[in-house]
């Protein structure tokens, strides 16, 4: 029972990351009709926003260490600590959550520039060419990051207060030993919040209505005198922000390195396809579903039964879904069924 609950949480956690990336992918595909292989790179850029912010906050100066009296010892002390004392230290501690505020404008800008500069010229080209050019872009972004941050994963710890584990076992009246890291729970809640707000934005605002109409029939919306192109550019920015935020919050769970985007990209494509191309609800549902499936498949009971299943389960599911239900779990009829 405990193990199952833990795996369920693990799965939801993984699934949340998949769902967030897949949500952005679907938005872009549904509105712009572009298959964006650089979307994983946006996720990675988000994680590196957190890294950069942390680096900026901890810019240090060499000072004499007064605690060592035998000789003059030096230590690195962040400026923030010198200027603000304990408040400064607390700010450094909260680097990751605070970097969200930096990540939103940065990711929005990156998204808009990407759409205006590159993606826009590929609306009319074939899907293969879209895949290729965004694949090239992903390589470029990845290598730029590697140039500045090196090839090794960079640990970006969560704030101290949530670095321990939550005793979810005792909350639910189960075993005391059942604990789960706070940060992962926060991540889950955060993802749920973002997903809800994206849906609320699309369902409740006029802008969202136009976007949904545009996903349904772009030409018709254009005929009604609405500048669809402009709206879609903003949608691309929005998708970049969603991917970026997912990356920021994922940084304490998985120390970011330059190729984490590629790893997540393949998975989230699989998620999009399983959910159904162009279906937002499908992307989210499939994200959580596949995340949970993957973490259950990695239980020892199951890997002993079918060795290697944890490595391939997602892809296996994708292959089966693609072959038996061409438009995915929740895809609209007639959209990309070929």
């Amino acid at each position: 029972m405990d193990a199952i609950l833990i795996q369920l949480l693990n799965g939801l956690d993984k699934g949340a990351a998949y769902a967030l990336i897949a949500l952005g992918l679907t938005l872009v595909f549904g509105t712009l009709g572009v298959v964006n292989f650089a979307h994983g790179a946006l996720f990675m850029l988000g994680a590196f926003c957190a890294v950069t912010f942390q680096k900026i906050l901890t810019i240090s100066v060499k000072v004499v260490d007064p605690s060592i009296t035998f000789f003059t010892a030096y230590k690195e002390q962040p400026y923030l600590e010198i200027w603000f004392g304990d408040v400064g230290l607390a700010i450094i501690d909260y680097a990751v959550p605070l970097s969200i505020f930096m990540a939103i404008p940065v990711m929005l800008l990156i998204g808009l520039v990407m759409e205006r500069g590159l993606i826009r010229h590929f609306y009319k080209r074939t899907h293969a060419e879209q895949i290729l050019v965004t694949f090239g872009l992903a390589i470029v972004i990845q290598e730029v990051i590697r140039h500045f941050f090196g090839a090794n994963p960079i640990p970006t710890p969560a704030p101290d207060i949530v670095s321990s584990s939550a005793a979810i076992g005792s909350w639910l009246g189960l075993s005391e030993n059942l604990v789960y890291p706070w940060w992962r729970l926060i991540y889950l809640a955060f993802s749920a919040l973002i997903i809800t707000s994206v849906f609320a934005f699309l369902q409740l605002t006029t802008f969202g209505m136009i976007v949904r109409a545009g996903m349904f029939d772009r030409q018709m919306v254009g005929f009604l005198g609405i500048d669809v192109q402009r709206k879609f550019t903003i949608v691309f920015g929005l998708a970049a922000v969603v991917a970026g935020l997912a990356g920021v919050m994922y940084a304490p769970i998985l120390p970011p390195d330059y190729h984490m985007g590629m790893d997540f990209l393949v998975l989230s494509f699989v998620v999009v396809v399983v959910g159904g191309m162009g279906s937002l609800g499908g992307a989210v549902a499939a994200g959580f579903l596949l995340g949970i499936l993957q973490s259950f498949a990695s239980m020892t009971v199951i890997t002993e039964l079918v060795p290697g299943i944890d490595q391939v389960i997602i892809y296996l599911v994708a292959v089966i879904v693609l072959l038996t239900r061409p438009r995915g779990l929740m895809g609209r009829k007639g959209v990309m069924e070929d």
């Binding site: 895949i131 396809v273 994708a318 292959v319 072959l323 070929d338």
Partner: peptide, 12 residues
């Protein structure tokens, strides 16, 4: 399958 689905299947 063809098109982008083929690409994703081979990717998988």
């Amino acid at each position: 399958r063809s098109g982008i689905y083929f690409s994703i299947l081979t990717l998988a």
